[in-house]
Every structure is written in C-alpha cells, then in structure tokens.
Design a protein around this nucleic acid. Structure first.
Lengths: 220, 220
DNA sequence: CATTGTACAAACCGAATGGTCGGTTTGCAA
DNA sequence: TTGCAAACCGACCATTCGGTTTGTACAATG
C-alpha cells in the first residue's frame, strides 16, 4: 500500500495511524510466532505495541481477524521473497545448491514467519490459516518439482525417483533444522547447529551423491 | 453424568481409582497433543474424561504437573519402544532401512506422542518438558550416530560426511513427514502422503545412493 | 458402632480472558 | 472557526480460566 514513511514530526494523519496498525501487526506476529494463538492475549499485544486494547479492536475486528491478517501479510511477504529462489541457471546440482542455500537463509532471517508456518502445519485444526500456508508452500513446491522433473527429462536425475519426494526432502530438511535447532545445540555429536548454511550445503551434497562410497573408491 | 460406579465387590479399591487417573492421563495426552498446553482447559479434560474438575486436582496437583506427567509417561513409553530399533544386523544399507521403517511406523502408531514432542520442539520456551524431549531424542540419536560412525570406520560411509548430519537427516525427514502430512495431501504432485513406509524407504534410498545417476549409466 | 482416610462431585473464588462502549483527542475540509 | 470522521483511550461486561473448599459415599480399621 502507501509507502510506510514515518517522520513522526510533520506527518500526514494516515501516517501516524497506519504506523500504529503496523506496530500492532508486527508485535502480534512476534508474539503469535513465539507463544501461539492461545498463548497470546490482546492485553499482551496492546501492552507491547504501546497502544490501548480498544485501539486494537478498532483496527481489527477480532483476535481471530488480527491473527489472520498477521498470517496473510506474513505469507505475502514470504511469497515475494521466495519468488526469486527458483530462478537460477546451471545444472541440477548448482540449482539445488543455490535453492537450498537461499531457502535456509530466508528461513533464518524471517524466523518469526517460519515459526508461524510451523505452528500452522502442526495445528492443522480449526483455524483457517492452514490454507494460506498450503497455498504459500504449494506454489513454490510445485515450481521446485517442475525443476526436478525437467532435470529428470535431461537425465540429470534418476528416472525411478519421485521428484515430489526430493522436493519434500529438500524443503523439509531445511524447515526441520530450525525446529530442532534448540535441541541440536545440546547434542554433543552435533556441531552444525549454529551454521544453517553449512548444514544445508552438506544435506544437498548427501542428496546429490548419497552416502555410500562409489564402488572401487576408497573413502578419502 | 455417569456415576462411574465402582465394582464394590470384586475389584480392589486401588483398581478403580487408578483407572480414573489413567483416564485423565490418556484424555490429557490426546488433548494436549491436539491443541497444545494453552489450548486445553481443565474443564475440557474433566468433561471428556468423565470426571469432575476437582478430581483432576485430587490426582494431579496442578495443570502443569498433569502436563509434565503426560509428557513423562509418554516419553517413557517412547523410549521403551525405540529401544529395539537400533539393534539390527546387516550392512549399513540394511540397518538404515530397518531403522527408518521401524521409526516411521512408530511415529505413525503413536501420533499423539509424536505431536506432543513436535510441540515441545516448537515451544522451546518456558515449559521444562523440552528437556525430556531432548533426553529422549538425544539418547537414541547418539546411538544412531554410533552406528554411522562404526560404518564409517568400515568404509561403508564416506569419510568426509558428518555422521550426526546423516542421523539428523534420517530422523528429521521422518518426523517432518507427519508435520507436513495434512499439507502434502493437498499437493497434486505428491502421492506418498498416505504411505509413510514407502516414503521413508524412498528417502533412505536417496540418502544411500543420491539422486544423480551414476556416470556412464542411463537412468532407469 | 464410631472413626478415619480416600475418591469423588459440585459449588465457589479471584484473576484474566475476548470484546464493547461512551467519551476524548486529532487532523483535515469547508 | 466550525464540523466531522477517524483514531484512540480506559472503564466496563460476561465468560472462562486454574485452583480451592466443602460435603458426601464408602471401605477399612478399632
């Protein structure tokens, strides 16, 4: 919409008012991502956003509406950011490596959004936001599958493999990384918990070449 | 309101009373797994378990205690069930295939527990249960890493790969399957959403051999 | 029989919840 | 200056929350 210009001194009316709504939205996004829908109260949002409770209901007709708006705008931003991920040249290995790296970097930078989507995946229940997440993921998922199918046609990917499964493995390993991250930090065998990029690169290498040494070769 | 008649003649007194506590526990497990801690009220549990609210507080000192008990007993059961997963003979490919199949079957059968653990992973916050999940996962994770390291010593696994990463990829792909399952069902490219075992087998095959056709070989 | 202790239900409590409402400020148009 | 609508606040409401208290049916013990 309007450019979110914000010089609070000599500003137009819609500036200040829109800024309040945005502040509510951002605070709500952070809190919902952190504590879930039921774990966040309107009072909490009002307090941390620095507005009155009544004002929240002035901008959003209900808590549910606020949540939907948060999810919607978050997904819109995600779609914008993910749009460029798939467009890359090179052979399959290069493209997958680029996609995975950009994907996990995106998840890392927007971890509020990531958690929100993870929550929606988990709930699956009454709240409608699941559809948004489905739509969001589905779109990019389909494109990734397209790339893989294409590579399959060119003989860069084994014919007997399901492209959708590879896509799920790629995306899932990245998403799950952040879900398990806090736990990974406590596992003595794990040293990649604080380096998402390295993790993702290693995963792609495994997916590309497998873990079994090539026949006739002595490992290292 | 069923008066929950006690068989005053034959049954031992601790029998009936224990049954009520178990009913509370099982109901709570289901509800907590479905709606999360904040999404479940004591009234809800009492109603669906067929006991009074006061009775719940008679058996469990607080909602938090009830939740911890649910998580604890669930984890104890999981540990018991997972114990046998790692003990299997054969080469690396066979062992990993067996582990992954047994693991995903276990997740499928005990999906209340699976969701509970997923929730704990996601929350990561104040509630202490995270430690339980960490302990639960950590134990089996370490054993899986041990197997992989062992295989590495025998040259069955590329030397330059991190065993912990392979373990994370194996376990994570299975867990994430159930998290994304509802979404997968709506993706037109996906046909494995209702066949966890097939999914897991294909994943292991990818991890073992990679997706790139061997040089000189024509796919399929 | 009286006493004691347990398992349970129902009424109840203060605090917090989502949501409403009347009134006040703000900023622009006429 | 006045008019007006949108932005905003804070008190208020009914409901529900986790948790407590009270009372009772019953089995075991003396």
């Amino acid at each position: 919409m309007a450019p979110a210009r914000l010089a609070s001194s000599a500003a137009s009316p819609s500036h200040a008012t829109e800024e309040a709504a945005q502040r509510i939205l951002h605070t709500a996004e952070r809190l919902f991502a952190e504590h879930g829908y039921e774990g966040v109260s309107i009072n909490m949002i009002a307090e941390q956003a620095g507005v009155s409770k009544g004002n929240i209901f002035h901008h959003f007709s209900s808590k549910e509406t606020l949540y939907q708006t948060v999810l919607g705008s978050a997904c819109a931003e995600a779609r914008r950011l993910l749009d460029e991920l798939v467009n890359h040249d090179g052979n399959l290995a290069e493209r997958l490596m680029h996609f995975a790296a950009a994907h996990i970097a995106h998840l890392d930078r927007h971890y509020h959004l990531t958690r929100l989507v993870q929550r929606e995946l988990l709930e699956g229940g009454v709240r409608r936001g699941k559809e948004l997440a489905e739509q969001l993921c589905g779109e990019n998922f389909a494109r990734l599958v397209g790339i893989l199918r294409n590579a399959q046609g060119r003989g860069e990917l084994r014919k007997e493999l399901d492209p959708a499964l590879i896509a799920q493995l790629l995306v899932g390993s990245n998403i799950f990384f952040f879900q398990a991250r806090d736990m990974l930090r406590h596992l003595p065998d794990v040293d990649f918990a604080d380096d998402p990029l390295r993790y993702s690169r290693m995963v792609v290498k495994v997916i590309l070449a497998g873990i079994v040494p090539p026949p006739g070769a002595q490992g290292a």
